[in-house]
Computed example of a mutant assay.
Amino acid sequence: MGKIQQKEITEFIVSHREEFQNRLLSEAVEVAAKINDILQSGNIDLLKNAEKMVAFVVEGKDSELISFAEQEGIAWAEHALTLTLKLEWVHAIRRTVWYYLFEYDQLNTHGLSISDYRSMIYEMEKQINDGIDKFLNTFFISYSSYKDELISAQRKMVEHLSVPIIPISPHIAVLPLIGMIDVYRMDTIEEKILTDISNLKIRTLIMDLSGITDMGIEVIHHFQRVLSGISLMGCEAVITGLRAELVRKMIHLDVSFDEYASTNGTLQQTLNEYFSTASV
C-alpha cells in the first residue's frame, strides 16, 4: 500500500468510528462486558487504544506500534488483566479491520486490473497481519517480562523477611535461620548479612542454624564464603545449633567453618555467655 492509500484507509475507519467501535464490541463479547470495568480499574480505554493500534498497523509505523505494544503489555500486567481477554480483543480488532478494508475496497478500487488488484490485496493482507502479529508478540514479551520482574521482586521481599537479623545490643545481632536453604536463598542471606553488618555496625553476628533441616553441597560452600565475607567486614561470626545431620555431611565433605566462625551448642548458651560477660 502506498502512503496516500494507507492514510486514506485510516481516515476511512476514523470517519466510521462509531460503527467501527460497535462492530468491534460485537466481535468481542467477553471484552465488551468488561470494557467499563477495565477503564475504571486500569484507566485503559480499549476503544481509543484499538483505534491507535489500527492506525499504526495500517500506516506501517512499526516503531510506534512496538512502543505502544510494550506500554500495553506493562499496563495489562500491572492491573492483572488476563491474556485471554487481550487475545479475544486483538483478534476482534483483526476481523473488524478486515471488514472495513473490504468496505473501503468496494468504494475505492474499481478500475484496477485483476493482477493489480490481487497484488494490492496480497500486500495489504501481509502488512495488516504482520503488524497485528508484531503487536501481539511484543505485547506478550512485555507482559511476561513485567510479570517475571514483579514475581522476582515479591520473592526477594519474602526472602528478605525470612532473614531476620535481630539486634540484641548496640553491636550484637542474632540471625535465626529456618527451613531449607537453596542457592537462591543463600544469595539473599549473603546480601542481607553484609548490608546489615555495614548499616547496623554489627560487631558480632550470632547465626542459629537449629532450624535448618539440610544444606546442599553448593550451599555449604557458599555459606563458607559468606562467613569469610563477615570476617572481612571486621565482624565476628558465631554459629549455634548445628544439627547432627549437617555436621555429618560437612565431615564427609571435609568442610569446616572453624576458620571464619566460632561454634556453640545452643543459642541460649551463647546469649548467656555474651550477656554474663557484658554484666561483669
Rank of each mutant, 00 (worst) to 15 (best):
K3V: 11
Q6A: 08
I9E: 13
K34S: 09
G42D: 08
D45I: 07
L47Y: 12
N49S: 11
A55S: 15
F56Q: 07
G60S: 07
D62F: 06
I66M: 05
E70A: 12
A75N: 14
L81C: 13
K86H: 14
R95W: 02
V97G: 09
W98N: 11
W98Q: 07
Q106I: 05
N108S: 10
N108K: 06
L112H: 04
L112P: 02
M124N: 09
Q127C: 04
F139Q: 01
I141S: 02
S144A: 05
K147I: 07
L150E: 12
K156P: 04
V158G: 09
P164C: 11
G179V: 07
D182F: 12
D182M: 10
K192N: 14
I197Y: 03
S198W: 03
R203P: 00
I206L: 08
I206N: 01
G216N: 12
G216H: 13
E218S: 15
V219I: 13
I230F: 06
L232M: 11
G234H: 08
A237N: 00
I239R: 00
G241A: 04
E245F: 05
R248S: 15
R248P: 05
H252G: 02
F257W: 03
D258W: 01
Y260T: 00
A261I: 01
S262H: 02
S262I: 00
A278C: 02
